[in-house]
Amino acid sequence: MEYMELLVLIITALTGTWITYYSCTRWSWSAVRSSATWSMIVALFFRFFPDLFPAELTRLIPVAFIGATFVGMVSARQTTSYLGIGLAALIYSVILLHTSAYFQGYGGALGTTACVALLVVLSSRYLRSDKKAYVGTRKIWKHLKKPVRRS
């Protein structure tokens, strides 16, 4: 794949992620409505105008865009930064281009790739935290320290 094609796919992923997230947060669309609407527009565009781009890009752009909208479906409660969403889209595009064949059969390559990209970005806040060793274990220890009542 040429560098221009790679750049087009990265821009496609960024656009799909940001426009989905924007329409969810600013226009109060549901995540499913936003993803489906923008994906349908892009898919129909490339269906009716298949000769605008080379054949390989005409096949890959709608697929990359649809998966990128999955990244943009993240809740605004989880992340409010367009930079974080953009970083997840960048990670998504790199994973999609290099390892999407390995995710076949795991709930779909696009959804799995989007999930992995979001988990990388969302977990980064715990790597910077001072409490990173205790994030998931506090409730477990609290539960284990309770005395067991026997009747």
Score class of each variant (00 low, 15 high):
residue 1 M to V: 02
residue 2 E to H: 07
residue 4 M to I: 08
residue 4 M to Y: 02
residue 4 M to H: 01
residue 5 E to K: 07
residue 7 L to K: 00
residue 8 V to C: 06
residue 9 L to G: 05
residue 9 L to S: 04
residue 11 I to R: 06
residue 15 T to Y: 04
residue 17 T to D: 09
residue 17 T to S: 13
residue 17 T to W: 12
residue 17 T to V: 01
residue 25 T to S: 15
residue 26 R to H: 06
residue 27 W to G: 06
residue 28 S to A: 14
residue 30 S to E: 09
residue 30 S to F: 06
residue 35 S to I: 04
residue 37 T to Y: 06
residue 38 W to F: 08
residue 38 W to K: 02
residue 40 M to T: 03
residue 41 I to M: 01
residue 43 A to R: 09
residue 44 L to G: 02
residue 44 L to N: 01
residue 47 R to F: 00
residue 47 R to Y: 06
residue 48 F to D: 12
residue 48 F to Y: 14
residue 48 F to N: 11
residue 50 P to V: 04
residue 50 P to S: 14
residue 51 D to T: 01
residue 51 D to W: 01
residue 52 L to G: 03
residue 54 P to A: 04
residue 55 A to V: 05
residue 55 A to P: 01
residue 56 E to W: 11
residue 56 E to Q: 10
residue 58 T to M: 10
residue 60 L to Y: 12
residue 62 P to D: 09
residue 66 I to A: 10
residue 69 T to R: 07
residue 70 F to Q: 14
residue 72 G to I: 11
residue 73 M to H: 04
residue 77 R to Q: 14
residue 78 Q to N: 10
residue 79 T to I: 10
residue 84 G to M: 05
residue 84 G to Q: 01
residue 85 I to V: 15
residue 87 L to V: 14
residue 87 L to N: 09
residue 88 A to R: 03
residue 88 A to Y: 03
residue 89 A to G: 15
residue 90 L to Q: 01
residue 91 I to A: 14
residue 93 S to F: 04
residue 94 V to E: 07
residue 94 V to F: 15
residue 96 L to K: 04
residue 100 S to F: 02
residue 103 F to A: 14
residue 105 G to Y: 01
residue 105 G to P: 06
residue 105 G to K: 01
residue 105 G to T: 02
residue 106 Y to C: 08
residue 107 G to S: 03
residue 107 G to L: 06
residue 108 G to Y: 11
residue 109 A to T: 14
residue 109 A to W: 05
residue 109 A to E: 11
residue 110 L to S: 10
residue 110 L to M: 11
residue 111 G to S: 07
residue 112 T to C: 08
residue 112 T to R: 00
residue 113 T to R: 10
residue 113 T to L: 08
residue 113 T to D: 06
residue 113 T to E: 11
residue 116 V to C: 12
residue 116 V to Y: 07
residue 117 A to S: 11
residue 119 L to G: 11
residue 120 V to D: 14
residue 121 V to Q: 11
residue 122 L to T: 05
residue 123 S to K: 02
residue 123 S to E: 13
residue 124 S to Q: 08
residue 126 Y to H: 11
residue 127 L to V: 03
residue 128 R to H: 04
residue 128 R to C: 12
residue 129 S to W: 00
residue 130 D to R: 13
residue 131 K to P: 00
residue 132 K to Q: 05
residue 132 K to Y: 07
residue 132 K to D: 02
residue 132 K to S: 05
residue 137 T to R: 10
residue 138 R to T: 12
residue 138 R to W: 06
residue 138 R to M: 12
residue 139 K to I: 09
residue 140 I to K: 14
residue 141 W to M: 08
residue 141 W to K: 13
residue 144 L to M: 12
residue 144 L to F: 10
residue 146 K to W: 05
residue 147 P to Q: 09
